[in-house]
Amino acid sequence: MHLNVIVPFLLMWIHVLHGTSEMTCPSQSEVGSTADITCIAPNTIDKHGYSTPNKEVAAICQTNRSSCQPLGDYSAAVINNTCSVLTIPSVKLSDAGDWRCTVSPSPMLTCHMVVYKTPSCTIISNEEKPAISVTLTGFFCSGRVQFYVAALCELFSGTVNKITDGIFNCTPVRRVSAETHLMFICDNVNRSLDCKKVNNTPTTNPPDQTTASSTVTSGNQERIIHNPLGFVLPLIICIIVIILVITCFVVYKKRPDLFRGKKQTDASYAVVEKGDHVPL
C-alpha cells in the first residue's frame, strides 16, 4: 500500500482511539513536490473544509457521503467518516504557512508547512587568496535561510520572499578543499549541496614561438596606437627626401650647367676663338 495512504490510516486510528481532532501536514515541502494534508475529527459527522494559507477554500469534503469537492489545482478524498486527505500535486511558494481545516462544531484545526527550494551552486576559489565566491541560482525558504561553506564560513543568513539568485562572498578559516560542500538550512531543513568547483587562479605558461610572435606583434600595434609619431615622422622624412630628389632631377634637365664644374679663366689671357691666327 502506498505510503501516502498508510500514514493517514495510522493517524486516523491513533486519533480515533484517543478521540481527539488534529490536522497534520509535512513540516517542510520542496517546491514542485507532492504534499498530503490530513484532517482527523472523530466528533464531526458531516464535513471537513480545507483552506490555504491565503485563506482561500481548497476543498470541501462530506465525510458522511464519502465525497470531496476540490477547488483549484488540489485533489481530496475521504478516508472514512472521521478522516479526509487534501493533496497538493505540486507545491508552490504560496503554499507555505498555516493550513486550516474547519470541522464544525469542533474548533478549527491548523498545521504549518515550510516551503523551500534548493539552489544549484558554483564555488569559485583562488589559491592565492583566502576569500571565495559562491554563485547560488534559484533558492527559496519560507522561513529563515542560511548558507554555509561546510563549517568554514557563512555566506548568507536572512529571509527571502521569492526564488532568488545571488553571488555571495566569504573568507573561510582554512583553504577550501575539493570535497567541500555547501550547507543549505531552511528552518528544520538541512541539505548538503554538491557545488561545482571552479579555480580562477591565473596560470602562467612559458610562451612558445607562436605566443612570442603574437606578443611582439601586439607590442608593435600598441606602440603604433599609443605613439603615432613613431610611424608618421619617418614617413614625413621619406616624402621630403623624395621631393628633393625629384626637384634636383628637374633642375638638372633644365640647367645642366649648374651641375658642371666651371673653368678658371685669367684676365691677362686673350680669348682665342677657333680658326683665328695668332701673330708671332
Rank of each mutant, 00 (worst) to 15 (best):
V176K: 00
I243C: 12
S120L: 05
V85T: 14
S51N: 10
R144V: 12
P105D: 07
T38R: 07
S192A: 12
G230D: 14
C25M: 05
V16W: 01
S66Y: 11
L152A: 09
H15I: 00
I79H: 09
S67K: 13
F147I: 03
K92C: 08
C61W: 00
C141R: 00
L229S: 11
F184E: 00
F156P: 00
I60L: 15
Y269M: 10
C153V: 04
K55F: 14
V245T: 12
H226K: 14
N4I: 01
T159S: 13
P42N: 10
S157H: 09
V160G: 03
N80C: 12
T87L: 04
D98L: 14
G49V: 15
C238N: 06
Q264C: 09
H226D: 09
I163N: 12
I239P: 02
H2W: 05
R260M: 07
Q209K: 04
V189G: 09
K253N: 13
T204F: 07
L109F: 02
N126F: 04
S84T: 13
K162L: 02
I236R: 09
V272R: 08
I163R: 15
M183E: 13
N227G: 03
S33Y: 01
Q221A: 14
F184L: 05
A41R: 00
T215C: 10
F9W: 09
K162Q: 15
G166W: 04
Y50G: 04
V272C: 10
